[in-house]
Design a protein around this nucleic acid. Structure first.
Lengths: 227, 227
DNA sequence: GTCTATATCGGGATAGAC
DNA sequence: GTCTATCCCGATATAGAC
């Protein structure tokens, strides 16, 4: 078995097991066992388990974010200075993610599930290199969104972007949460339908009337009545 | 130190460490060390680490879901047979969660972060007892929502509920994802503002026009153009 | 490059004195 | 109920033969 093959097999197998069990719970014995390579191969090819994790994320994220930047630039070039429609920006950013998540054979779906789960509970070394991978792309998209929504405060846009990240993450991560909630019957294999559903939900949320933020003195009353 | 005190101290400490590090990465040595009790105390009081985890979730979830059911019943009694406003139902379900998440001193905030992270990647034993805890509450809320939205297909409601779970989960789980995305400046301590923001976003998403689901033959074209 | 064997560490759990 | 000491296991990592 050649060097390249072994590396790829380890990466693919690790990705699948990480997505299924989490980074910490997956052992090098499981990975090398399932990949049918020797236990020592991970340390030989990557140096350590941490470096393997880094590489699993890196190889997909650089590609994904390059796609996003290119498509955003295309969009901006076509607009020729005119303001972009917010929905177009979201379609580029989240569409790229969902397109990758729709790729069941190439492992894209597996990876996106892993990525979504990693956002909320990253260990420090994971958080730091994810931030590096995203640094270029997010500033570009956020400024584009802010320009596309002149009436909306920047803080509000950031929050809604955060909410959308959560929605997309759950949408991609399968139906575990829904199964906990007692609904096992949903079909999450129709990725086109999922994309359509998600986009209309998110556009609706992005376009929603701004919340009326009350003064501090009224705080207690509001939450109590609402909850 | 009395029995009760030790039990509580273990539960509180475990909850905090689980939220911070995850269930698997947190060791019994860390818990007992931070709680300043003996290493053997966990096995004595709970039997095993798994049983401790179960109890950490159980004590908060039963209370939370009882609140939700009571408030839903109140709402339905007040309506006296008339259809409920969807937003009122969401306010009860998610308001209860956010109210608990606003409790920084009593550990509610810590717990809700733990819960949100657990939804997406539950081990089998966790998934099964979470499903038990939620069994009563979700069927009630889903049927209420379906009745409140007569024009909307049941499947669509379930999906949008799923998206909302994701948004709420991310909103509660802190700003890790946003920090990865390069925005560290958001204030997530103003829980009332967060509640208002989240509710208007979710109502907007729930009220959004239904997606136009295309025929299977048109699938490839749509996603390609969109992404 | 690949393998076996092993070093070193830290995990959960328990026995038995107090 | 609490503590110490210990068992047993499986983790990452590496040394050294092939």
């Amino acid at each position: 078995m050649s060097e390249i093959d072994t590396r790829q097999r380890i990466l693919d197998t690790a990705e699948a097991l990480f997505a299924e069990q989490g980074l910490e719970s997956t052992t090098m014995r499981q990975i090398t066992g399932a990949a049918e390579v020797n236990l020592a191969a991970i340390n030989y090819h990557f140096g350590s388990k941490e470096e393997l994790i880094r590489e699993v994320f890196r190889r997909r994220l650089t590609w994904l974010n390059r796609q996003r930047l290119q498509q955003l630039e295309t969009l901006q070039a076509e607009a020729a200075g005119k303001p972009l429609k917010p929905s177009r920006i979201l379609e580029v950013f989240f569409g790229a993610a969902l397109k990758m998540a729709a790729d069941t054979e190439g492992g894209g779906r597996t990876f996106m599930r892993l990525l979504g789960r990693t956002y909320t509970k990253p260990t420090e070394f994971v958080r730091s290199f994810l931030a590096d991978e995203y640094a270029a792309v997010t500033t570009r998209f956020m400024t584009a969104l802010i320009q596309a929504l002149p009436g909306v405060p920047k803080e509000e846009i950031l929050w809604r972007f955060h909410f959308m990240l959560g929605a997309v993450s759950y949408a991609i991560s399968g139906t575990d949460a829904l199964r906990i909630m007692g609904a096992d019957a949903l079909d999450d294999t129709d990725t086109d339908a999922l994309y359509a559903r998600l986009m209309s939900f998110m556009i609706g949320g992005l376009r929603a009337p701004l919340p009326t933020l009350q003064s501090p003195s009224a705080k207690r009353t509001r939450i109590k009545n609402a909850a």
